[in-house]
């Protein structure tokens, strides 16, 4: 791998830029406002794709890469760096999701936050993976760091269904009616152009995710090589100290 990004990655970058621009045009100009929500509905064209990418794609990739790292036959630094890069992007997107959702909630419901099941699960996931990133930042030898991170990623992932289930019950058992009616919102019984914009948004953000992942991975890989070189220098110095050529 060279220090420059490959042509394929550059094409990916252009593609995501173009699709994102298209999404913006569709979201802001072409699609109509919602009957109930007005213009704030346009936020959803960002909100839904970032949420889907963060929760399913990014953390899915992190978990899969961590498993592949721990499995002896496929163990390589590649998977570890992929897991880390993907989780970073995931946390970023999830942060965006929460932020956009919060702004949207303020406009639509009049509150920044509500203890709705989906929101709560998202928030817990956000801190769960912040913890994962914190573990990755703890200094240790590369092998130790990778293994530790992979185990933490899997421990976090194991928790996801339990968090989801508990929060789901919590809200249904203890809150009579939320003012959020999920079904009406997310069921695309909406204007045709709106559905298409949402679809386009998902594609655009998926491309963006791939592009970011490639770059973040490359950066991590280069950092790794730099550390390796420093290690080699240290060993050479040690050898010189011993008087061995």
């Amino acid at each position: 791998m060279t220090t420059k990004s490959s042509p394929a990655v550059r094409v990916l970058g252009w593609l995501s830029a173009v699709t994102l621009a298209l999404t913006a045009v569709m979201a802001l100009v072409v699609t109509p406002g919602d009957v109930n929500m007005g213009d704030s509905v346009r936020l959803l064209y960002l909100h839904v794709p970032t949420a889907w990418l963060a929760m399913y794609v990014s953390f899915g990739v992190t978990t899969l890469a961590s498993v592949l790292y721990l499995w002896k036959r496929t163990r390589s630094r590649f998977w570890d760096l992929t897991a880390g890069a993907s989780a970073e992007i995931g946390v970023l997107f999830l942060g965006l999701t929460l932020l956009i959702g919060s702004i949207w909630g303020r406009i639509t419901w009049g509150v920044w936050w509500t203890w709705d099941a989906r929101l709560t699960t998202t928030a817990v996931l956000f801190v769960l993976y912040l913890g994962y990133l914190a573990v990755r930042k703890v200094p240790a030898s590369p092998e130790v760091q990778s293994r530790r991170a992979a185990i933490v990623a899997i421990a976090a992932f194991l928790d996801v269904p339990i968090v989801h289930q508990s929060v789901e019950w919590w809200r249904t058992l203890h809150q009579d009616a939320t003012f959020l009616d999920d079904r009406r919102l997310l069921d695309p019984q909406i204007h045709g152009s709106m559905a298409w914009t949402l679809f386009l948004g998902v594609i655009a953000f998926t491309l963006l995710y791939c592009w970011l992942l490639a770059h973040r991975f490359r950066l991590a890989w280069l950092e790794d090589r730099l550390a390796d070189r420093a290690m080699q220098v240290a060993i050479d110095e040690r050898r010189a100290e011993a008087g061995i050529s």
Binding site: V124, A134, V152, I162, V163
Partner: peptide, 9 residues
């Protein structure tokens, strides 16, 4: 930071 989110449920 690691334990509390996991123990949330």
């Amino acid at each position: 930071l690691l334990v509390l989110p996991v123990l949330a449920p």
